[in-house]
Design a protein around this nucleic acid. Structure first.
Lengths: 112, 112
DNA sequence: ATATATGCATAAGAAAATTATGCATTATAT
DNA sequence: ATATAATGCATAATTTTCTTATGCATATAT
């Protein structure tokens, strides 16, 4: 994914949030949207993305709908109700993670 | 480590930053300091910490100094010059990671 | 005396990525 | 025209990083 190892573990959160925002998306579209939003800094690899989508589908957080565009196949994913709930959880976890990392890295903010 | 998977990949950054701030620390001290700063939310496990310290030492980012306190052994770690440089890099990566995640997760902020 | 805290370490396994493929269609540049 | 890049899905082998479990040893509080 990114140039740094920090992105490890955040792919699920990214996918869920993008689907919450955009309603439904297909795999390739997700990679392009992430690249666009991060101005090329974060590139989701297919080897990471597709297994992640399949896992989320298996966990019933996503529904899939196959569409044929021209002669090309697309698999649109969207959040299930369960997926919407999980998205909220993941976003809270992200906020907490960021807060914790910030106090760890910015000692001024902690009581010495 | 944490309750969430987001912490994966951030242990090295945490260790380097703590050593930059505190000069030298031993393993157990690091676990306690992290617990204290995050108010118990992040607990570094020994199974993660010690291999990480050994790896950083092997990469010559850390120097080790063994001390005997009473009858107890402590291994104090401190940054090498190389380690100080790498710390700066890791902190930049963390800031960039946080910025990217924030725009991914909070589309409104990307306009600001 | 026994539990808790301090202090280090490693091993087996799981989870999530990277890297390398593979297949197929469509658009574009030379 | 045809080679290259882009679009679109997928999986397999390997690596990295963590969890969980275990082991050893000393100090302290109840």
């Amino acid at each position: 994914m990114g140039n740094s190892k920090l992105y490890k573990g955040s792919l699920t959160t990214i996918i869920l949030k993008l689907l919450e925002t955009h309603g439904k998306m297909y795999g390739y579209e997700i990679t392009q949207k992430v690249k666009e939003i991060t101005k090329g800094e974060l590139n989701i690899t297919e080897g990471a993305l597709y297994p992640a989508l399949h896992k989320l589908e298996a966990a019933e957080l996503l529904d899939v709908e196959v569409a044929k565009v021209g002669n090309r196949l697309r698999k649109y994913y969207k959040l299930t109700d369960k997926g919407s709930v999980e998205t909220v959880n993941k976003l809270k976890e992200l906020e907490q993670y960021i807060r914790n990392m910030q106090v760890l890295v910015n000692p001024k903010w902690s009581i010495e």
